[in-house]
Simulated scan of single mutants.
Amino acid sequence: MAGADDFARFAAAAAAAGYDETQVRDWPAAAVVDQHDHPFAVLARVVAGEMWLTAEGATRHLRPGDEFTLAAGQPHAERYGASGATYWVARRH
């Protein structure tokens, strides 16, 4: 997994782009999150494990180094791999 300096750079870049909150999210193996949405926009980077993100009728398989964005209110679903996943997320409220 990437180090603290890398997370600090991610957080700084996200803040410069208008995101007001950053955090590390860890998901357990084989977790499934049914379709939902958030009242904030999302910028995220997978740093460990793998996940599948379904949004707008398409599913993306995301691995370390991959990024994704979601608009506020955008419906999406998530599924995590056999080892779970960790990603850094920035939120714009």
Rank of each mutant, 00 (worst) to 15 (best):
A2G: 05
A2V: 08
A2E: 06
G3F: 07
G3I: 10
G3D: 15
A4N: 09
D5E: 15
D6L: 12
D6G: 01
F7P: 02
F7N: 00
F10K: 00
F10D: 00
A11F: 01
A11T: 02
A12I: 00
A12Y: 01
A12F: 00
A13L: 10
A13Y: 01
A14G: 04
A16N: 07
A17C: 07
G18E: 01
G18P: 00
G18W: 00
Y19R: 06
D20L: 05
E21T: 14
E21P: 02
T22K: 10
T22Q: 08
T22L: 09
Q23W: 12
V24S: 07
V24Q: 13
V24N: 08
R25T: 11
D26A: 12
D26K: 10
D26G: 10
P28H: 09
P28L: 03
P28G: 12
P28Y: 01
A29Q: 13
A30W: 09
A30K: 15
A30G: 12
A30Q: 13
A30I: 05
A31S: 12
V32A: 14
V32G: 03
V32K: 12
V32W: 02
V33Q: 10
V33C: 11
V33R: 13
V33D: 13
D34R: 12
Q35W: 01
H36P: 04
H36S: 00
D37E: 05
H38K: 09
H38V: 04
H38Q: 12
F40D: 09
A41R: 01
V42K: 00
V42N: 02
V42S: 05
V42Y: 00
V42H: 01
L43W: 09
L43P: 01
A44N: 07
R45I: 03
V46G: 03
V46Q: 04
V47S: 11
V47T: 14
G49E: 05
G49Q: 09
E50I: 03
M51E: 04
M51N: 11
W52H: 15
W52E: 15
W52F: 05
L53Q: 10
L53H: 05
T54L: 02
A55C: 12
A55V: 15
A55I: 10
E56L: 11
E56C: 04
G57F: 03
G57P: 07
G57M: 03
A58F: 11
A58G: 04
T59E: 11
T59L: 07
T59G: 02
R60E: 15
H61G: 03
H61V: 11
H61S: 05
L62N: 03
R63H: 13
R63V: 15
R63M: 14
R63T: 15
P64D: 08
P64Y: 06
P64T: 06
G65L: 10
G65S: 06
D66A: 13
E67S: 14
F68A: 05
T69Q: 11
T69I: 07
T69M: 09
L70S: 08
A71H: 14
A72V: 07
G73Q: 05
G73T: 13
Q74R: 14
Q74Y: 06
E78C: 07
E78R: 01
E78F: 05
R79I: 02
G81I: 10
G81R: 05
A82M: 02
A82C: 04
S83V: 13
S83C: 06
S83L: 15
G84F: 04
G84M: 02
T86H: 03
T86E: 06
W88G: 00
W88E: 02
W88Y: 02
V89E: 14
R91W: 00
R92Q: 08
R92H: 00
R92K: 06
